[in-house]
Simulated assay, not measured.
Amino acid sequence: MTQITLNIPDEELTFFMKLIEKFNYETVINDFSVSEEMKNLLDHRRVTSKSEDFIPWTEAKKQLIFKSKK
């Protein structure tokens, strides 16, 4: 089976849905929830973060340590 992911502009969605009604398709919604506690923590981190504390991704990924599976 081949799986295809499409990004459909909102204004074209109705047309597209009518078109694919003729085919067998499955709608997948990537849905996740974030608790109020998590939202508050992220908001706090955004407000209190300082740009001088940021580490460029090229440097940050050097600091990652991966454990090998045995």
Rank of each mutant, 00 (worst) to 15 (best):
Glu59Tyr: 14
Val34His: 03
Lys18Gly: 02
Leu19Thr: 03
Lys22His: 13
Lys61Asp: 04
Met38Leu: 14
Asn30His: 13
Asn30Ala: 12
Ser49His: 15
Glu36Lys: 00
Lys22Cys: 00
Val34Lys: 12
Arg46His: 15
Ile29Pro: 14
Ser68Thr: 12
Phe15Tyr: 08
Tyr25Asp: 00
Ile55Lys: 02
Met17Gly: 09
Met17Arg: 11
Met38Cys: 05
His44Met: 05
Val47Trp: 06
Ile65Lys: 11
Ala60Pro: 01
Val47Glu: 09
Asn40Cys: 05
Phe23His: 09
Gln63Met: 13
Asp43Trp: 02
Val47Thr: 06
Glu59Val: 06
Lys22Val: 08
Ala60Glu: 05
Val28Gln: 04
Asn40Glu: 00
Ile55Gln: 10
Ser35Asp: 10
Met17Ser: 01
Val28Pro: 02
Ala60Ser: 07
Glu26His: 04
Ile20Met: 07
Leu64Tyr: 02
Ile55Thr: 09
Lys22Asn: 09
Glu59Gln: 13
Phe23Thr: 04
Glu52Gly: 03
Thr14Ile: 03
Lys50Ala: 11
Pro56Leu: 05
Thr14Glu: 11
Lys61Gly: 14
Glu21Asp: 08
Lys67Cys: 11
Phe32Trp: 06
Glu37Phe: 03
Arg45Phe: 02
Lys39Gly: 06
Val28Asp: 10
Leu13Ser: 09
Leu42Gln: 13
Glu36Val: 00
Leu13Trp: 06
Asn30Thr: 15
Glu59Thr: 15
Glu21Thr: 04
Phe16Ile: 03
Asp31Ser: 15
Glu59Ala: 10
Val47Leu: 12
Phe54Cys: 06
Phe15Trp: 01
Phe66Gln: 14
Asn40Lys: 10
Met17Asp: 10
Met38Ala: 08
Val47Met: 11
Ser68Met: 15
Glu52Pro: 05
Met38Asn: 12
Phe16Arg: 03
Leu64Lys: 02
Val28Trp: 07
Lys62Met: 02
Asn30Pro: 04
Val28Leu: 06
Thr27Asp: 02
Met17Ala: 07
Thr58Tyr: 09
Lys39Ala: 02
Asp53Trp: 00
Leu42His: 14
Val47Tyr: 01
Glu36Leu: 04
Ser51His: 13
Asn30Ser: 10
Ser35Thr: 07
Phe23Lys: 06
